[in-house]
Design a protein around this nucleic acid. Structure first.
Lengths: 347, 347
DNA sequence: ATAATAACTTAAGATTTTCTTAACTGAATG
DNA sequence: CATTCAGTTAAGAAAATCTTAAGTTATTAT
């Protein structure tokens, strides 16, 4: 098998490349000390690397004077080649991280999160970055970054996305909510919640809270949903419309609770085994537009955490004062989570 | 103190350079296995280096299929930069070893060695390398290679030339010689060698054999020289002209002994603490003209070694048969050396 | 003068990186 | 159905690199 001969250097024996780099820096500064600082190593390390290279080449590259080093003719010959060689290498590396479309930010996330939280709040980000065109691509499945231009995904899950970098954004809680307008129609203190219609979307198996819910409120299993939808947006709309009671993620409901469009009539909440994550191939995180967005959303999301503190406190204390007849005098039940947001990474 | 900002890559964080090189080779062959062979390491090492680089970059460079690897778009982007970057580096390295004058070979050596041995035998080298112009620069002092175009020096000494590479060429022996034409005029068996005139050049202190010589032949110390010259060439001429007895280095005398222009009338010889060395900055040895010369002289010099075997044998055996009256019936005295050429490096 | 300082060298040991060995995959070959 | 082939992975061995702690030698400061 014959191959085309290797281009240039690949065929020959290369000198220690690290030493070449050290040489480049030392030659630039005409000082081992400063090269050492630049490279975050000791002077001695620089001295040794240069010696190594000189031994490899069989000729000295620096003339050592008392308090200075100076390039020999050989060193002067080598210097420009080393500089331009390394520059070429780094040009290639920059090219890799280069953002082919720095003015567009394409984000993939759940439709519910997009509609209920992200898009409504996006104004401040767009004000901060007027040059940037943000596209939100809603979807239930994770984008394959290979075949799309997606910069970043916001996913609700366990945080295991092989080959991708993930950053925890927010842990979330499920809680039963309904419109205050229908509370007079149903007596939730009665067994079976007084017949209030149950609205549900299809929760993932691992996060299926309905059996536990049924047990606590005395409903027969499996629970009968009067409405089953596939997306939390529609579910939210149904709850808002007073069609019944649903388990909603706090992140989607908190603004509605704060504005009293929704209420939490039962002393339960569940910590979701899933969380929100920023997900993308690692190098996407190096794009400045992604960094800006990451920065922005990290701050924005604090609002949810803060709201949760308030709501979970009043939720519990409210029911402590006048506990539900149905609740077996138990204290409010908290599944899987205790207290406010924990940052323990169980991604 | 403000410095001009570092050119290109020097300022940024560099990826593992070794891994970049491995990438270049692997990308060239589109095969880790062949890259491994090329780099004289195992496949596993290549696999790991590539993974390392991919982790550093945050993106994959190769698509792993069952029995082949293929560059990803990112890999394809990087490849040409890496190739040309390394090519630039190696251009610089080649430039360093480049011989500015490949058609001229400039050799510095002792005038005696040049005149008595090197120049007379140089014909065969010049026949082998007709394109090469050989210049012999005779001199007693070692050339400073910095300020001359000398390619190579042949020095007689201990082999300690700091900063320079040395190669042992030949160990040498001093022996007393005179012209056969004057042996009838002096009875060397008489005390004081029958008054034969002593010819000498100035030997270095460390190699001063005269006190020992005086003791052995019963001459008063310090020895009285009827002629003292500064160069062995002149000394040889004087001996040839029958002006007396001298201690000559075998390398200079052996042809004259073989042609019976000179004889060795006394059963002594001394191993010199000095030897002949090839001396030059290491990279000079990489020049092909120097390599050729080195090859040639190494072969040529075998002639001297071979001659020494013969001469030292006959010298000793001859005197064993009819030992000198004056020699106190001692066996022939050998200082510092025993027998033929030893290759023990005492440089 | 004498001391302090600055830049570099060197040796020895510690640390980190890189390599090898050996067991394992998964698809093509025969 | 077993082999082979190209690559992966983990663990330990080997090698390269770095730090620490002395020196060196000339310059600057006291």
């Amino acid at each position: 098998m014959s191959y085309p001969s290797l281009p240039g250097i690949l065929s020959g024996r290369m000198p220690p490349l690290k030493a070449l780099r050290v040489f480049a820096v030392a030659a630039h500064y005409q000082s081992f000390k400063q090269a050492a600082e630049h490279l975050f190593v000791t002077q001695a390390a620089v001295s040794q690397q240069i010696r190594l290279l000189e031994e490899h080449l069989g000729q000295t590259l620096f003339i050592r004077l008392n308090r200075e080093v100076r390039l020999t003719p050989a060193g002067q010959t080598l210097y420009p080649f080393v500089i331009s060689g390394f520059e070429e290498l780094s040009r290639g590396l920059e090219r890799l991280n280069e953002d082919s479309n720095p003015d567009a930010l394409i984000i993939n996330c759940l439709p519910s999160f997009a509609g209920r939280w992200l898009v409504p709040g996006l104004g401040s980000f767009q004000q901060q970055n007027p040059a940037l065109t943000v596209s939100i691509i809603p979807g239930h499945a994770l984008e394959t970054f290979e075949h799309s231009d997606t910069d970043l995904a916001i996913r609700f899950g366990r945080g295991h996305y092989p080959g991708l970098k993930t950053e925890l954004l927010l842990e979330d809680y499920y809680l039963p909510v309904c419109s205050p307008s229908i509370l007079d129609r149903y007596d939730l203190s009665k067994p079976g919640l007084g017949g209030i219609p149950i609205l549900s979307d299809d929760l993932p198996d691992d996060d299926n809270l309905w059996p536990d819910f049924a047990r606590r409120v005395g409903l027969p299993e499996p629970i009968h949903s009067s409405l089953l939808v596939h997306d939390a947006t529609m579910l939210t709309d149904a709850v808002l419309a007073g069609q019944g009671l649903a388990l909603l993620r706090f992140s989607l409901a908190y603004r509605l609770i704060e504005s009293e469009q929704l209420v939490c009539p039962l002393p339960f909440y569940w910590h979701s085994v899933f969380s929100y994550f920023l997900v993308a191939p690692e190098h996407h995180f190096r794009r400045s537009k992604v960094q800006k967005f990451r920065q922005w959303i990290a701050e924005e999301i604090l609002e949810i955490s803060a709201s949760w503190k308030k709501v979970s406190d009043t939720l519990l204390s409210g029911f402590e004062a006048n506990s539900l007849p149905d609740s077996d005098s138990e204290p409010p039940v908290i599944q899987q989570a205790c207290g406010p947001y924990s940052t323990s990474g169980k991604c």
